[in-house]
Design a protein around this nucleic acid. Structure first.
Lengths: 208, 208, 208, 208
DNA sequence: AATGAATGAGTCTTCATTCAT
DNA sequence: TATGAATGAAGACTCATTCAT
């Protein structure tokens, strides 16, 4: 909300300021709870000014969601490009997703709130479907390569997505108790159960 | 011999009707999105009537949260009382939590949204802390009993809570892709990695 | 705008007050020019109160138009019932219409303003069509009875409607120069032209 | 040898463009309904540009009214100059007025609406007074010349003005039922009543 | 215990007007 | 002369809350 030569800014700059402000405000107060005045004030712009760049509250919100979704998709795509082994890729995936969740905190939560709107549903649906496929393929590649044990790849993909969503929710609900991504991956890889007849130290012993 | 008509309900009954209505309406529209009129209508009571039992919207919402939290705590407590086997207890825990999430869907999400209010924070904090301890103790008991491999019990507890939260979020965001609790538990127990030098079929093979 | 026991009025009374206020305000400022606050204030009611009885500005306006239209239709119907001779009926018709216009002044004008709305068009269309038919039948009855000369009844009906509309418009635009209905009828009946070979005093000589 | 691009228009041309645009927009949307942005866009000029030529919306509207009034006055004056025969002059007068009304449709209506403003009242007043005098003189000339029967010239003048206004209002309200000026003049000239003791076909028989 | 009409502050949104360029 | 981003007051409409009945 720093004042930047308040009366003459480029259109681009103003739009950017509004976007940043909107993310902040929507995140903190939810869709209904956020007001256009709050957003304008946070952006250091007049109320009317916001409407110069976004037709209305709904469109502003939708825009944010699309932007963020695209952004995350790009980041994720990149790890799949730099081909390395399956295990590392999965590890990276979880980390990037979790890191992204931390950055965008509550905004992501809004994906799931403010029902009664149907808007934005398609965006979300598409994104999730894509992610699930990506993960499923990765798991299956892992099975083929002999890295992973045979398992229901669909369910594993879902589990990973659940964990990431759980992380997202925790960021807002219970930020003191976020899981450490490394630990998380370790548990998923090794499981909780003691391998029978195995007296050697389990891989799951992490912190000490 | 008067007819007990609609306006002659016991105070208790009215309060209950309001609570049920409020859960439904808050769940569907979020805190800001829900209106007292909606709630009153859903409860089959006048607007003014609601204020006879709850000072205001905030208090009504808060009351709901407490009720639900208490309810879940009771359910969870019961499995710890009756159970013996650690593995079964954990399995049961996940299932109950997940089932509860399904039942209370969006309402639970409201725990974490509609911020700007600090209200409810203490209730949630306390509840989460208790749950984490419960899980941590369970994990440690599992390690002691030799069921579980040695691991960072704190992180495992967090993971399980994350998964449950992920399930909650998924219920709202992506209900077509909910994980199957059985599969979930299986993966957590066995892990993804193929046990080295093990050519026998992994425990993790679920779908076939 | 007299205060009437401001805090407790019957629903009926409030609605009536709003209607009266709305007529006044819409008449004076036009549809766009009138504000709900003005209307509420004029009615001695809160803004929100107006919305208790009318869904929105448009509906309030529409309601007014319908009411007034129905009212006029009833009045006109009555003169056709009390069957008298054609000439007298026509005379009465003009007078009632003109009188009505005076009473409802600008509101009637709103029928024709505030375009861009299509709303209300059907109401108006129906009303006008009915009136034209009524008048046309009357003219034709006059021709049959030998009271009126043979003429294009359709055009005569239109002319009469035009005159009445002209009166309406004049009420607002140029109220100092309203025609006297008696004079008006006289001219329509007798025409301006001197009847050829007629040296007797014309019926059209009125004021002196 | 510079290219005369769009932004290098003469002040005169710009002003003209604004005027034309304003007429169009005011006519279609009414005073309150029209926005400066609409007008600017229609004129192919920036919002700010409009304010270079007109201090504000009110002044722009006022200017339009004056222009149009002057224009009509000029047209009417011309028929009085060229004409001789009273009957023909009156006929011409009605036709020109009616034609003008058709051309300027709703704009004329704006003369009488959008009150709350007192503005423009003097312009209108003056114009109407002039017109009434013109017509009155014409009628009296007709009486003197023996063309018209003796009658209250003032009232006849008013009637004609009413008819024209009725035509204006009809253009907007009920454009399907506009009177044919020829028919109109015929009725005014001949009247509706059958001349007593006259069995010859009335002059009023128009349609067949 | 219950009602629901009434209130008015607060929301989203529009638009006349200004002004740096 | 011209632009159009920016302003902010004002309008339609909503809704938590009150209170006479």
């Amino acid at each position: 909300m720093e004042v930047v030569n308040i009366s003459r800014r480029s259109g681009y700059e103003s739009k950017k300021r509004i976007i940043d402000a909107a993310i902040k405000v929507f995140s903190q107060y939810g869709y209904s709870g956020a007001t256009m005045r709050m957003i304008a004030k946070e952006a250091g712009i007049s109320v009317g000014g916001v409407y110069l760049y976004f037709k209305n509250k709904e469109e502003l919100f939708l825009f944010l969601m699309q932007e963020k979704t695209k952004d995350l998709e790009t980041r994720i795509a990149s790890i799949f490009e730099e081909k390395r082994n399956v295990k590392d890729t999965l590890e990276k995936y979880v980390k990037i997703a979790v890191e992204y969740a931390s950055e965008n905190k509550e905004l992501i939560l809004l994906h799931g709130r403010e029902l009664g709107f149907t808007f934005g549903m398609e965006i979300k649906k598409g994104f999730f479907e894509k992610q699930k496929k990506l993960l499923k393929n990765l798991i299956e590649a892992g099975i083929s390569s002999g890295d992973f044990a045979k398992c229901n790849s669909e369910e594993v993909a879902k589990l990973i997505m659940h964990i990431i969503r759980g992380y997202v929710l925790s960021v807002v609900v219970d930020p003191e108790n976020l899981i450490d991504p490394d630990e998380c991956v370790k548990i998923i890889f090794n499981g909780l159960l003691k391998v029978k007849g195995d007296s050697s130290p389990s891989l799951c012993s992490s912190s000490e």
